[in-house]
């Protein structure tokens, strides 16, 4: 909201400042968003005595930060734009929040963007610290997110790439050819989220047994998930046990 202050903001900022920097949500925008949760206390089994049962909380609209971003973020973005001609196509939006920069990259361009970020001397993000999957079942058309954290030791910078893919077509190109370190990380994300990284040399399960059914860290997979046999007795999975919530 305070546009004049932005250039002076160092990358290390507090959350409330970051919220100020993001454009305000219009009421109409908010109402179009999918519902994130209803009610207040997560209680669904008993009658609503709190008065908050009708509360509807919607997801935040997808915003992008306005320029200038502050710190080195402008420089990174400018260099990438210069080095990568299809920048406007590839980068869907840029969010600067809590002193961190997130580039939302379209999956078609991920490999090229990663290669540019690694090879260009002004960018030189030579280390990728793996990929982290996040499952947003309510984010229709982009349910699965793969989040890459890149580190430039040369310039001492960090940025984040976020790539999405729909649940029906869970394919994201593998960046192993650019960052070989992501070999196991992509296998892990495939194992837990079911994201298929096209072009990975050997995309197999890594943490779960090879014959496991399902991808355990997805939101539609319950905690535990399977009954466990312990000393002859069968213990049901946590979601099927008696619960007071």
């Amino acid at each position: 909201m305070s546009d004049e202050k932005k250039p002076q903001q160092p990358p290390a900022q507090t959350a409330d400042q970051a919220a100020d920097r993001l454009p305000a949500h219009k009421a109409a925008d908010r109402r179009e968003q999918p519902i994130a949760r209803t009610g207040m206390f997560g209680a669904g089994t008993t009658g609503d005595t709190s008065g908050y049962g009708g509360l509807v909380i919607r997801q935040s609209p997808k915003v992008s930060s306005p320029r200038p971003f502050g710190g080195y973020f402008d420089e990174v973005s400018d260099h990438l734009e210069r080095q990568f001609p299809e920048f406007a196509d590839a980068i869907e939006r840029i969010v600067v929040d809590r002193g961190e920069m997130t580039l939302y990259v379209s999956r078609r361009h991920l490999l090229e963007v990663a290669r540019t970020l690694r090879d260009s001397p002004e960018l030189r993000f030579e280390l990728c610290t793996g990929v982290s999957g996040v499952h947003y079942p309510k984010d229709t058309g982009a349910e699965l997110h793969a989040v890459y954290h890149l580190l430039s030791m040369t310039h001492n910078r960090r940025i984040r790439l976020e790539v999405t893919c729909p649940d029906e077509d869970p394919h994201i190109p593998s960046v192993v050819s650019v960052y070989p370190t992501n070999d196991w990380h992509e296998r892990e994300t495939y194992d837990f989220f079911g994201i298929v990284f096209d072009g990975h040399p050997a995309l197999t399960r890594i943490e779960m047994p090879d014959d496991w059914v399902g991808h355990p860290q997805r939101k539609d997979y319950p905690l535990g998930g399977i009954p466990v046999e312990y000393r002859g007795a069968e213990i049901p999975p946590p979601d099927e046990r008696r619960s007071y919530v």
Binding site: S132, H135, V147, W184, H185
Partner: peptide
């Protein structure tokens, strides 16, 4: 480098917590 990627949806529980454990990466 032990990295942690935490995601919040505004609630009282982590929406996602991912750890980039150095042992995992180094073992490669």
């Amino acid at each position: 480098e032990l990295g942690v990627h935490v995601v919040s949806d505004g609630g009282t529980r982590p929406y996602r917590a991912h750890f980039r454990d150095p042992s995992f990466t180094n073992l490669q």
